[in-house]
Computed example of a mutant assay.
Amino acid sequence: MTGRDGGAELEPIEPSPVVILVRPQLAENIGSVARAMGNGGLFHLRIVAPRDGWPQERAWRTGAGAHRILDSAVVFDSVAAAVGDLHRVFATCPRPRHIIKPVLTARGGAAEVVAIGQRGLRCGVLFGPERAGLDNDDIACADSLIRYDLNPGFMSLNLAQAVMVFGYEWWLARQDEQPMRELQTNETVPATKADLDHFMAHLIRECDDSGFLKNEQKRPGMIRNLRHFFNRGEITRQELNTLHGVVSELVRGRKLRPR
């Protein structure tokens, strides 16, 4: 969908993280998110499996001039596809339970996102559907969680408010131009989420063949735990190649052993 008359001129502020809305339910909420993004200097919007399809004219009516953001929005069928070209992914999660991942405040998460962008890496932030939020499989695609430090007795934000809080903190965090830390990768580069998905497919396939995942009831949780393990920090392509080799050699050794 191309531009609408009367839309404000919004220039991207780079490096800008990607805002990823997972299964949003109302077009009006997507428009309000675009408005919040414009206020926070965020520009890149991705939408995963919107309930009512896309585009929806109602989004532009509630976008209050953030037409360029809506015009450039990209739709994906799954979270894995939406984050495939990213190096780091954060997930907003009000009540992280039974999940072993770093948990950051909105301010800490925004500072981390700025530092990631200063290292030339692409990153995104997941926001869940209005009614239920992100599920465990969505969160498994993220490296870290962001939890807003709000009144524990009433932590009820609508979708646009959640994006606005993060956008505000990201805008402020940009004022510090010096990266807080760097990852020395020498001749390799950080792996993207698609690189990691390729390795996970290899690992899970061999785990299935070996019988490690034979318990069908526990299998989804075990796979999520494996993904959580590799998603806790930046892993390089060279390291993934090494792990591919490890899995392949384990399989080769198993096949060569006499029964």
Rank of each mutant, 00 (worst) to 15 (best):
P96M: 09
E11Q: 05
G120Q: 09
S248L: 13
R147D: 06
V83M: 04
L134K: 01
G109R: 08
I139D: 08
E249P: 02
R119F: 08
P94Q: 11
L45C: 05
L45R: 06
G128R: 02
R219G: 00
V189I: 11
A132T: 15
Q178E: 15
F212D: 05
E239H: 13
I116H: 05
D135N: 15
L243P: 08
E11V: 06
F127W: 03
L256T: 05
Y168M: 05
E182A: 14
P96R: 10
G253K: 08
D149Y: 13
I235K: 09
S144H: 10
R227S: 10
E130G: 09
L226G: 01
M37Y: 07
A80Y: 03
D135H: 12
P190K: 10
L26Y: 15
C141L: 07
H67V: 04
Q184I: 15
V114D: 00
R61G: 02
G41T: 06
H228K: 07
L86M: 13
A81V: 08
G117D: 03
Q217F: 03
T2W: 08
R131H: 11
P179F: 11
H202S: 10
V103W: 08
T236R: 12
V83E: 00
S32N: 14
E177M: 06
E234Q: 15
R61P: 01
N136L: 08
A82C: 04
L134D: 01
